[in-house]
């Protein structure tokens, strides 16, 4: 089964000199799962993500993401993953459609393919009526959906989200997660990092990292039952204090 996992790590380790940022990380995330990867600052989260995205070679252990060996098939890996951050980098003076075409183009999609992908994505993102609008003039919730579209343009198999819904109102946030659930239902694996535990509540399973190691991994409800925490914030603090 482990060969089938969308994100798989075994004893994945990264050292910087004497300091071990990530220590023997084991992880198995299935296709279509929404996985929350949590931890305090300095816990090793960013280092782990950078390895999984092919940006940093591991010092030990192994990992596969979307079927690519981390540290080996780097080019193929980058084409099979998508990345969206709260600080999205949309071009404000391009239209919605132009942004989507630009980011798809970066990943090597041809003209016809881009047009077809835009026709498919824009209605799903609720942005079809806005395709000719300048991105800078859009409300934040729309920009966020467009950013998601740009990260999805090249049909990645694994999508990395970094604090994806920071700053948006709770209605827009719920709408955004509904889009994520649709992607997951289509088989896209979603890997979420966030400092905000109300975002963690939307994940199917979460792991919590402390000092380079994963100290807990379960569903949000499972973690609440186990730690007696009322919400994920409470769970997180109890595990970090333990």
């Amino acid at each position: 089964m482990s060969g089938e996992a969308a994100v798989f790590a075994r004893r994945l380790t990264r050292r910087f000199g004497d300091f071990t940022a990530v220590e023997s990380l084991d992880l198995e995330v299935a296709g279509g799962e929404i996985f929350g990867f949590l931890g305090a600052n300095g816990a090793g989260k960013t280092t782990a993500i950078r390895m999984l995205c092919g940006l940093l070679p591991p010092s030990g252990g192994e990992a596969r993401v979307a079927g690519c060996r981390v540290g080996r098939d780097t080019g193929a890996l980058k084409r099979r993953i998508g990345y969206m951050s709260q600080r999205f980098s949309l071009y404000e003076d391009l239209t919605v459609l132009e942004n989507l075409e630009f980011f798809g183009g970066v990943y090597g999609l041809g003209r016809a393919e881009l047009a077809a992908r835009a026709d498919e994505l824009l209605p799903r993102l609720g942005l079809d009526a806005e395709r000719g609008r300048l991105t800078g003039s859009l409300p934040l919730g729309y920009k966020q959906r467009l950013s998601l579209g740009c990260a999805l343009a090249h049909r990645p198999r694994v999508l990395f989200l970094d604090e994806p819904t920071g700053g948006v109102d709770p209605v827009a946030r719920r709408g955004f997660w509904d889009l994520i659930y649709e992607q997951a239902a289509d088989g896209v694996t979603v890997f979420v990092t966030t400092h905000y535990m109300d975002e963690a509540e939307y994940c199917g399973r979460v792991s919590i990292m402390v000092q380079g190691r994963i100290v807990a991994l379960d569903t949000p409800s499972g973690l609440k039952d186990r730690t007696g925490g009322a919400d994920m914030q409470d769970v997180f603090l109890r595990l970090v204090d333990a």
Binding site: G39, A40, N41, E163, H195, M197, L237, V240
Partner: peptide, 10 residues
């Protein structure tokens, strides 16, 4: 506390 982790936020 925007961008600050839960431990520092507490």
């Amino acid at each position: 506390t925007t961008g600050v982790d839960p431990v520092s936020r507490r």
